[in-house]
């Protein structure tokens, strides 16, 4: 490896490391299954290396990387969606979700929470990509509307009304929408 290449490698590492956790989470939210998420994550790192010069110039590499990932996901959505559908079926197998529960949950409430979680996962899977994504990013990953705007490029107002509709759909899918019977 030449000294130029060693330099590139070192700045790539330094620049990327602080963002890897968040990027990994985002890739899972987008892709929906671990193998697909890790492929997506890897693809984005390869893209980032190819655009190292741009990356060095960017003031906030975090949102920049998220945006690269989002666009890559959108471009490969059809392929990735297939994997997600398979993943949903797998998650309905009993036992699978139990293993993935973190240890800090109250054991007494585990069964109830697990039930909630399985139902939510299934309800989320019935939403359109746009609706599911906005809920995953905003309500689950705590991205602000402005941050989602940075990632997707959609206007904040559009994202906000999409979020509103997505939550309504989700409540419908869960059968907990109490607003139907209201005057």
């Amino acid at each position: 490896m030449s000294s130029l290449e060693q330099n590139q490698r070192a700045s790539f590492d330094t620049l990327l490391r602080p963002h890897l956790d968040r990027l990994y989470r985002l890739s899972f939210r987008l892709a929906g299954s671990k193998p697909e998420a890790e492929d997506l994550f890897q693809d984005v790192l390869v893209k980032a290396f190819a655009r190292l010069d741009d990356l060095l110039d960017v003031r906030e590499p975090g949102p920049w990387l998220c945006r690269v990932m989002y666009n890559h996901f959108i471009d490969n959505r059809r392929r990735i969606r297939r994997a997600r559908l398979v993943c949903v079926e797998e998650s309905q197998l009993p036992g699978q979700s139990l293993d993935s529960l973190p240890g800090d949950l109250d054991p007494v409430r585990d069964a109830e929470r697990l039930d909630d979680i399985m139902r939510l996962g299934q309800a989320l899977a019935t939403l359109s990509d746009e609706h599911r994504l906005v809920i995953l990013l905003h309500d689950i990953e705590d991205y602000k509307l402005a941050e989602i705007h940075q990632i997707t490029g959609d206007p904040v107002g559009t994202i906000k009304s999409r979020l509103h509709r997505a939550r309504a759909r989700l409540r419908e899918a869960l059968g907990t929408d109490g607003t139907n019977s209201r005057p």
Binding site: F28, E38, F41, S100, D116, L120, D139
Partner: peptide, 21 residues
């Protein structure tokens, strides 16, 4: 949704980030 977020997120293997970089 928060609980779902915590429960549904897989962890990468310990060396995954190193290998990916």
């Amino acid at each position: 949704l928060k609980a779902y977020g915590k429960s549904s997120l897989p962890r990468p293997d310990a060396t995954f980030f190193d290998r990916a970089l």
